[in-house]
Each structure stands twice: as C-alpha cells, then as structure tokens.
Computed example of a mutant assay.
Amino acid sequence: MPLDRYYTLGRSGLRVSRLCLGTMTFGTEWGWGADEETARQLFNTYVDAGGNFVDTADLYTNGTSETWIGQFIAERNLRDRIVLATKFSYSADPSNPNAGGNGRKNILRAVEGSLKRLGTDYIDLYLLHTWDRITPAEEVMRTLDDLVRSGKVRHVGLSDTPSWYASRCQTLAEWRGYEPISTLQLEYSLVERSIEREFVPLGLELGMGIMVWSPLASGLLSGKYRPSEGVLNADGRLEMMKDSQNSAFQKFSDRNWKIVAELESVAKELGHSMAQVAVNWTANQPGIGSVIIGATKLSQLEDNLKSLDFDIPAELLDRLNATSQLETQFPYSFFESTHQIMIHGEKPVTTKPIGYYPVG
C-alpha cells in the first residue's frame, strides 16, 4: 500500500499517511541519531514515497529536530503539503518551574519556540507530550482551543496520558465547544499491547485516532535481535539504555524473547524482514490511525516504507497474536462470559458492526 493513500486522523478532516516519519533521531545530541545530511536524506525519501505526515517535539535532540525539519520543508517548498506535528511538556530550563509541564503559561511559551524553530506560522497537529499529573484538563483544553482559534494550531492531540484523563479532555471539548482531540499518541507493538485494554475502545468511541510510537519496541523487533542465531545483545539503544530509568527501553524479558522468536519465524515464512512484519501487524490493528517510523540510516527507512505492501495470512496472525496476548486483568476479567450470561441470559450477546446505522 503506497504512502500516497491518505486516511483521516480520528474524527477529523485531516488526511495523513498511514506511516508517519518520526524525527526523534534527527540530530546527534543524545549520543545516537542521524547527522544533518542523513536526516535530510531520510526526509526526502519519505516525502518522495508519498508520505505527508511528520512528527517531532520541541525537545527532540534539544530543538535540533524541529530546526532541521523546518529547513527541509522550506528547501522543497512543502509547507502546504506536509502535515506537521510537534509536542510540548518537557522543560529545557530546570531552574524555571514554568518552563515545562502542561499549564497555560508553558504551552503558550512552548508554541512560540516551536513556531520559530520550525520556521512556520502554524502547526497542523499540536500535542501534549506527557501527562504532568497536576494540570487540570480544563486548563489544557481551553489553552489548546485558544491556539486553534488564533490560527497558530490546526488540530490538537494527547500523548502518553491516562485513559481517564484523555476521556475527560474529549468530553470537555464536546461539552464546551472546544477543538476536539483528533489523536492519541501512544506506545504500541507486539511486545507492548497495554493500550488495547482501554485506549483503543476509547479512541473508537470518542473519535480519536491512535498514532503509534515505537512499533519496533525501541529496536527489539527490528531484526537486530535474532534468537535463532543467538544474537540477543546487538549494538543499539536498548543495550545503551538498559540500565536507565526510562521504562521505554526496558524490553529484555522472557516473554518478549518468545515474541521476538515467533516474529522471526513468521518473517522467514513470509519472506519479509522482522521490522516490516512488526510494523504491518501494528498498523492493521483496530483503532490505529498512523504508525510513526523512525530511522538513523536510509536502509532502515527504506525497509520500513515497504511494511504495508503485503498482507499477513490469518494463520500467521494467529501465531503472533497468541504469543503476544495480554493477560486479562480486573475489571476485564470480571466481564467474561459467565457474568455476561448472568446479565443477558443464555442467548449470545451481539454488537452492531462498525458503520451500522438504523434505517428509517
């Protein structure tokens, strides 16, 4: 499936590619990443393949990512074509208590910095990057709505928040006539399926398409780790960051190695790379609007761009799903069939298919 087939993001009119170019790797300030020329090559390759959706954040590589993206867009006069997403929340000045977080003061400060670095007068999709645990949803949504009304932002979204907080934000938007949330940006992959419990149903119910980050589980599913060959500790971010406090890089576990082994087996049967199969699986799950793919090398991006060019047969999907299946937890375990029979009787309960509308 080529990238020039576009889908609306959530319940909005914003049309985006199913694969989004992630640019957290644009810059070498963090000890890994792509230099400017390589980053430009990655951007051009993505755009030439038909992609129109680019994701960054104000503090990715200390602002270098936004700066380079702005330059690359300007060099090719692509501002009207590119759907540009960026995020706020993190502080570049720890000494200033209002230089981070999701309060109005920081949001208004952050958006001006992003606009300047990106070299544009508007942002297509502006996202809260991470829940700060203190700012009321009312303040966040009113401020984001003000930015939309001012013309500096077109659409808004949330990344890495609790489901109850996202639900409250969207309900406030509907109730008060604010710009609604069009997307939730969340981690999702064969080894991290937690969003299936609440976020996927939430997004489908309230019109928020999910943007997936880390579909390769920070590299665990990329093909660098092949249990059949005894390759379990390849050079990469997971090895560099395994002793850090960042939970996104804590992927080494017995469960995850079993998933990697099954992925390797399925990829061999399909004749595709492990990365392609992992991205394909993620992109075709319910509620997923777009999958963010990042790279530090052109070969990695070129491989990922072919992820939607094939279908995974049902038998192989069943194997991947069975190996990576979530353990049922309370309260979902309480909703199992026994209790449903006690509620509804012996007759099976059915739900209306997506797209069903009553006649008359």
Results as ranks from 00 to 15, higher is better:
Tyr6Leu: 12
Leu9Val: 01
Gly10Tyr: 02
Ser12His: 10
Gly13Tyr: 04
Val16Ser: 01
Leu21Glu: 03
Thr23Ile: 12
Thr23Gly: 11
Trp30Asp: 02
Gly31Ser: 07
Gly33Trp: 09
Gly33His: 10
Ala34Cys: 05
Ala34Ile: 03
Asp35Trp: 09
Glu37Ile: 04
Gln41Arg: 15
Leu42Ile: 04
Phe43Glu: 07
Asn44Glu: 15
Val47Met: 03
Asp55Val: 08
Tyr60Phe: 11
Asn62Glu: 10
Glu66Tyr: 06
Trp68Asn: 01
Gln71Asn: 13
Gln71Ile: 12
Ala74Pro: 12
Asn77Tyr: 07
Leu78Gln: 00
Leu78Met: 05
Leu78Val: 05
Arg81Phe: 14
Arg81Val: 03
Thr86Val: 04
Phe88Cys: 13
Pro97Met: 05
Pro97Ala: 09
Asn98Met: 14
Gly101Cys: 01
Gly101Ile: 09
Asn102Gln: 01
Gly103Met: 09
Arg104Asp: 03
Lys105Gln: 14
Leu108Ser: 08
Arg109Trp: 12
Arg109Leu: 11
Glu112Pro: 04
Gly113Leu: 02
Ser114Tyr: 06
Arg117Tyr: 06
Leu118Met: 01
Asp121Trp: 07
Tyr122Val: 07
Ile123Val: 10
Thr130Gly: 03
Trp131Gln: 05
Ala137Gly: 00
Val140Gln: 10
Arg142Gln: 15
Leu144Ala: 03
Leu147Pro: 02
Val148Trp: 00
Gly151Val: 01
Gly151Ile: 11
Lys152Ser: 11
Val153Ala: 09
Arg154Glu: 06
Gly157Ile: 03
Pro162Ile: 11
Pro162Asp: 00
Ser163Phe: 07
Trp164Thr: 10
Gln170Trp: 04
Arg176Asp: 12
Gly177Phe: 10
Tyr178Ala: 01
Ile181Ala: 02
Ser182Ala: 09
Leu184Lys: 04
Tyr188Arg: 00
Ser189Met: 07
Ser189Leu: 11
Leu190Asn: 09
Leu190Cys: 00
Arg193Pro: 08
Ser194Val: 03
Glu196Ile: 04
Arg197Ala: 10
Leu204Pro: 03
Glu205Gly: 13
Ser214Phe: 04
Pro215Asn: 01
Gly219Lys: 01
Leu221Ala: 02
Gly223Tyr: 06
Arg226Glu: 10
Ser228Ala: 02
Val231Ile: 15
Val231Glu: 15
Val231Phe: 13
Leu232Pro: 04
Met241Asp: 08
Lys242Ala: 12
Asn246Lys: 12
Ser247Pro: 13
Ala248Gln: 12
Lys251Asn: 14
Ser253Asn: 14
Arg255Ala: 13
Asn256Met: 13
Asn256Pro: 15
Val260Arg: 10
Ala261Leu: 07
Glu264Cys: 00
Val266Ser: 08
Lys268Met: 09
Lys268Glu: 15
Gly271Asp: 02
His272Lys: 15
Ala278Phe: 01
Trp281Glu: 11
Thr282Ala: 15
Gln285Lys: 14
Pro286Arg: 12
Pro286Cys: 07
Thr296Ser: 14
Ser299Gly: 09
Leu301Met: 01
Asp303Gln: 06
Leu305Ile: 02
Leu305Gly: 06
Asp309Cys: 07
Asp311Thr: 15
Pro313Ile: 13
Ala314Phe: 11
Arg319Phe: 13
Arg319Pro: 10
Arg319Leu: 09
Ala322Leu: 13
Ala322Val: 09
Ser324Gly: 11
Leu326Glu: 13
Glu327Gly: 10
Gln329Val: 15
Phe335Cys: 12
Glu346Asn: 14
Lys347His: 11
Thr350Met: 09
Lys352Pro: 08
Ile354Glu: 08
Pro358Phe: 02
Pro358Met: 01
